[in-house]
Design a protein around this nucleic acid. Sequence first.
DNA 1: CGCTGAATTGTGAACGCCCACAACTGCCGG
DNA 2: CCGGCAGTTGTGGGCGTTCACAATTCAGCG
Lengths: 348, 348
Amino acid sequence: MSPSSSSAFRSRLPSVTLDDVAARCGVSYQTVSRVVNGSHSVAEKTRARVLQAINELGYRPNLAARRLATRRSGLIGMVGTDITYYGPAQVMVSIEETAKRHDYNLMFAGIERSNDSQLAAAINDLCEHQIDGLVLGVQVEGRIDLVRRLCRGVPFLSVDSTSALGVPTVVVDQSLGVRLAIEHLLTLGHRRIACISGPPGWSAAHERRNAFIRALKRAGCDVGRIAEGDWSAESGFAATMELLKERESFTAIVAGNDHMALGALRALHAKRIRVPGTISVVGYDDLPESRFFEPPLTTVHHDFARQGERCVTMLLRLINNESVDQPVELLRPEFVVRESTGRARQGG
Amino acid sequence: MSPSSSSAFRSRLPSVTLDDVAARCGVSYQTVSRVVNGSHSVAEKTRARVLQAINELGYRPNLAARRLATRRSGLIGMVGTDITYYGPAQVMVSIEETAKRHDYNLMFAGIERSNDSQLAAAINDLCEHQIDGLVLGVQVEGRIDLVRRLCRGVPFLSVDSTSALGVPTVVVDQSLGVRLAIEHLLTLGHRRIACISGPPGWSAAHERRNAFIRALKRAGCDVGRIAEGDWSAESGFAATMELLKERESFTAIVAGNDHMALGALRALHAKRIRVPGTISVVGYDDLPESRFFEPPLTTVHHDFARQGERCVTMLLRLINNESVDQPVELLRPEFVVRESTGRARQGG
DNA sequence: CGCTGAATTGTGAACGCCCACAACTGCCGG
DNA sequence: CCGGCAGTTGTGGGCGTTCACAATTCAGCG
């Protein structure tokens, strides 16, 4: 923001405005504006003439000006963490695509840790850009009031967050996914099942873990120790090594995501433990790569793209003050059986 | 854009403006503006008073208005394809982070195929938002003129594109990466090396493939058939199956990225071919997961985050009309030896 | 004590657009 | 031939900011 740089800016060539177009074809700027905005109370002939002038001059509306005048930005904001992971990235892309299809643009703000100050900074930042709506891709439990205060009437919803907070959400039915996994393992005769959960502070991790415990209890199995990872393959590797050190044995591992499952596979291989011969492994998410792991991973398939799409649809309804029939939308995951799970060893 | 929706908008609560703040503490809006923009020609006492009013009222500058007045947006645009891949995603995140550190925001526009019309639409879209600079994360060869025309003086640069076009670029030294890989294999005694290249239309793919051919020729080896994938593990699997069908044998595979290498590993495993015992495999990119593949993958490490960072740095110089000493910045990749490569079978 | 100049503050205009409303076209029927 | 009406087009004002410049304040000094 030094004076020198700002003077450099001013030297940028002036853009073509409504007035320029208007002058060119002898109408008022308002008529041009009408053409640009597709108002149909403009004569065919005039419209054609204006359109031509627009083309010749290469007129492009200045959205900043429009935004100022209409108090709408055509912008959807999103704040998220760890967008480099496949899931979040996929959701973001899908949001961007869907938004674009509805003539909205996406503005993404990444934060490293989901603490109050970073979250506040990101939301403020986005709001200064006059976003029309906000997608929260971060942990918001306990911060809803903060968010609501910062948003000042800008509608928002959350992906990947627990419900019951009065915040509209589009979320996978984590519980169902985990249940499918556990049922599959039970059917195969597994009774002692270990878990590698995702990091605290992610509600997806939290819910999957809780669902795991519930499902096991319902089946009358003991819940053994639950190891914790951070979603990375590396942490899955470490967690598995930890689990293997414990006295009590198990015949299956349910990992919080596919990356950690990959780490688990690697750890088991390093220990010369056969998968699924000795231990079965189940992942969560179904990365495109998971089919090619060694062995191909049995996992819970989650349609991230659809999640992003539903998000935008719901957000647009909120933006337009339309009724939202289902403030919490649950997406049903599917279970994909591949080769990393098999029958439990007898009496293992 | 129906009338009903726009009326819904107008009902949104009016925001706090400079005037509101000014009224609150009995100064003119200009003084408040000065405080907000950190001008230092304002008395300490006044500044304090204004600052307090800003806090009390929760004033947030309206960037649309500022943008209109200054003709700067504080926005960097990026157009990219396939941002769900680890590399591109990583680059984008890094760009966003770096931009934020310099008080810029990122606006991303994804396109499905890098054809003229989609590219034009994306650039127009971004430009309507008055971006100050543009990062091209798509294939631009043969489209530079189009881009230049659309940008109208907005500076741009490209990631992942070949040089020699007069377009500033931040790119990995693909050639070096491939050379490192080939030299490694040559040292291990490999002479017949196959390649799975990335899809046409990606200059990274193109360059890696050319570098592969060059390196092999220089070493006096024959260049066998080169299979083609689309970056996905699945395509790597298919390509490897293809290669294995051919008569002429080989003792090593160089894949265009780690995902395809994963597919190759899987294909070899399915065919009961030992890695690296019978065939060695080298990847490219070094995903965080690659260490956990079976076997852990030898690959070329690429620092995507750094690439994004350099991009922004260079773009900011362009935006500020500062001199750019090196319009093409080459990043040096590193070679990482793990367990998917070993000595070539004698006389294999 | 009045003058000077620096420090501080205020004013008018502009940025490009949209809204509400006013004004102008024709064309019809009476 | 004129009032009226629908279809079109033009005008004034304002969105929230910044810029250039004008106006004010306040020391310090001869």
